[in-house]
Simulated scan of single mutants.
Amino acid sequence: MDPELVTRARVLHVTGITPALGDGPRAAVRRAVDLARAAGVTVSLDLNYRARLWTREEAAAELTHLVTRADIVFAGPDEASLVVPEAEPATMARTLLDLGPREAVLKLGARGAVAVTRSARAVQDIVPVTAVDPIGAGDAFVAGYLAGLLDDAPLPGRLLLAATCGAFAVAVSGDWEGLPRRSELDLLLGADVTR
Score class of each variant (00 low, 15 high):
residue 159 L to D: 05
residue 80 A to Q: 03
residue 132 V to Q: 06
residue 48 N to M: 09
residue 166 G to Y: 05
residue 162 A to D: 11
residue 44 S to V: 07
residue 101 P to T: 02
residue 105 V to K: 00
residue 168 F to Y: 12
residue 160 L to M: 13
residue 186 D to M: 03
residue 21 L to G: 15
residue 124 Q to Y: 08
residue 187 L to Y: 08
residue 131 A to E: 15
residue 138 G to N: 07
residue 133 D to W: 11
residue 179 L to A: 13
residue 84 V to A: 06
residue 44 S to G: 12
residue 91 T to D: 14
residue 62 E to A: 15
residue 150 L to Y: 07
residue 6 V to I: 15
residue 190 G to L: 02
residue 111 R to P: 05
residue 90 A to K: 12
residue 2 D to H: 07
residue 176 W to F: 13
residue 36 A to I: 06
residue 137 A to D: 02
residue 41 V to C: 14
residue 158 R to V: 09
residue 142 V to F: 00
residue 80 A to V: 04
residue 48 N to E: 10
residue 30 R to M: 04
residue 41 V to K: 07
residue 185 L to I: 00
residue 48 N to S: 09
residue 65 H to Q: 14
residue 123 V to M: 09
residue 53 L to D: 09
residue 130 T to I: 14
residue 164 T to G: 11
residue 188 L to F: 11
residue 3 P to S: 07
residue 146 L to I: 13
residue 140 A to R: 04
residue 162 A to F: 05
residue 144 G to F: 08
residue 107 K to C: 07
residue 92 M to C: 10
residue 172 V to R: 13
residue 82 L to I: 05
residue 91 T to Y: 04
residue 54 W to M: 13
residue 128 P to A: 11
residue 164 T to L: 05
residue 133 D to I: 10
residue 180 P to M: 01
residue 189 L to K: 04
residue 14 V to S: 04
residue 17 I to G: 14
residue 184 E to T: 06
residue 169 A to T: 08
residue 127 V to E: 14
residue 53 L to Y: 04
residue 67 V to S: 02
residue 11 V to E: 00
residue 77 P to F: 00
residue 14 V to G: 06
residue 159 L to A: 10
residue 61 A to T: 15
residue 98 D to I: 03
residue 104 A to I: 00
residue 77 P to W: 00
residue 26 R to Y: 10
residue 63 L to E: 15
residue 160 L to W: 04
residue 88 E to I: 11
residue 9 A to W: 02
residue 192 D to C: 02
residue 30 R to Y: 01
residue 98 D to V: 00
residue 39 A to S: 15
residue 9 A to G: 01
residue 35 L to I: 12
residue 144 G to L: 07
residue 117 T to C: 03
residue 185 L to D: 07
residue 145 Y to H: 10
residue 22 G to A: 13
residue 26 R to V: 08
residue 177 E to V: 10
residue 133 D to V: 10
residue 104 A to E: 02
residue 8 R to C: 08
residue 119 S to V: 14
residue 117 T to Y: 02
residue 58 E to M: 09
residue 171 A to T: 08
residue 113 A to M: 12
residue 21 L to M: 15
residue 13 H to D: 09
residue 90 A to N: 10
residue 187 L to R: 15
residue 157 G to N: 03
residue 5 L to D: 12
residue 68 T to K: 08
residue 122 A to C: 11
residue 159 L to I: 07
residue 3 P to H: 04
